[in-house]
């Protein structure tokens, strides 16, 4: 989620000055004011830039630098050019992890976003009793750390003394083993849906609150009911929020780490060390001492994520132009 937050900050920082400049341009004169304003602007910007360079740019550059070398237990550190990248692109372990998170993305993200949208629409309809409590209730799982959430669900669905185990044994219902290889991805999807539905719901809810009341009034005058208003006003108004939430979810899916890593402790024969690309890079670096190759894998993963997120943005932008 750190990346998501960075994106939010970034957008805020990017939007603010341009808006301010537009407004000020109308009020104050051009000479003098601009340079002084610029100086203040840079001064305000500098601390952010310093932190950004130290914590985001420098590690990225270092990872790219690392990925061009190969440090072996026997033979030492040598420059290897793009060898790590060609290896990564043909590495079946990496690619299988990538396709696994791809599948996860295609199935879990729509389920979660549709659920979040329905909840946001329900709360926004104003017809829900105890809407505030419901809203905070749906959001609370997001405040639970991912590790705790995964452990909790791991125990709930565990065979030995989990809830699922007890239901299986006491009621004689043959529940499947949710920690087996056939069910594991669905179990992880369940945990992440539980964790992040509330977060996405808030994004949608905020977008719904931004709709001018006049639109509803006009629709009512035209004789539109609640469902018609939801379909013709609210859902179209959610498009930008949906793009944002989808982008976050793509990033989140490709970076899947906490949940499978904890599940690995509970079912090591099921969650392999290459279950997700991030887990693979982690194991390469910290158990295999292959920092260089892990860096290449991380860079490839980053590029894939950026490209996909960009494609989503581009695709929706084009649709918006058509509509």
């Amino acid at each position: 989620m750190a990346v998501g937050n960075a994106v939010v900050d970034d957008a805020a920082v990017g939007d603010r000055p341009s808006g301010a400049r537009r407004r000020r341009g109308g009020v104050t004169g051009r000479q003098g004011g601009v340079t002084r304003h610029n100086r203040v602007g840079y001064a305000l910007f500098l601390p952010f830039l310093a932190v950004f360079v130290v914590t985001i740019v420098a590690p990225l550059v270092y990872a790219i630098y690392l990925s061009l070398y190969r440090d072996q237990m026997i033979g030492g550190n040598v420059f290897s050019g793009l060898a790590n990248y060609t290896q990564a692109l043909g590495d079946s372990l990496f690619l299988s992890g990538l396709s696994r998170v791809g599948l996860f993305l295609v199935v879990q993200v729509p389920v979660m976003l549709i659920l979040a949208m329905l909840i946001a629409l329900a709360i926004d309809s104003g017809r829900l009793a105890g809407a505030k409590i419901f809203r905070i209730g749906v959001f609370i799982p997001y405040a639970v750390p991912g590790v705790v959430a995964t452990l909790m669900w791991g125990y709930l669905v565990g065979r030995q003394f989990g809830l699922a185990g007890s239901i299986s044994a006491d009621l004689g219902i043959g529940l499947p083993n949710f920690l087996s290889s056939g069910w594991m991805l669905a179990t992880i999807g369940n945990v992440t849906t539980w964790e992040f539905t509330g977060y996405n719901m808030l994004i949608f809810y905020a977008a719904l609150r931004a709709i001018p009341v006049e639109l509803y009034e006009a629709a009512e005058v035209d004789g539109a009911g609640e469902f018609r208003k939801a379909w013709s006003i609210k859902v179209p108004a959610l498009r930008r929020a949906l793009v944002l939430a989808t982008t976050f979810s793509i990033i989140g899916s490709f970076q899947l780490f906490n949940e499978p890593s904890i599940m690995q402790q509970l079912a090591p024969g099921v969650v392999s060390t290459n279950y997700t690309p991030n887990l693979y890079a982690y194991n390469l670096a910290f158990n295999g001492q292959e920092y260089n190759y892990a860096a290449a894998v991380a860079v490839v993963l980053g590029v894939v994520t950026v490209v996909l997120a960009y494609v989503v943005q581009l695709w929706t932008a084009r649709r918006e132009r058509v509509l």
């Binding site: 087996s180 290889s181 690995q264 079912a267 090591p268 024969g269 099921v270 392999s272 060390t273 290459n274 194991n283 158990n287 295999g288 001492q289």
Partner: peptide
């Protein structure tokens, strides 16, 4: 390292 990937192969068959 070898031990860290044991669960991916032999461990997988044990689980199954």
């Amino acid at each position: 390292y070898a031990n860290s990937v044991f669960a991916d192969s032999v461990g997988h068959d044990i689980s199954a």
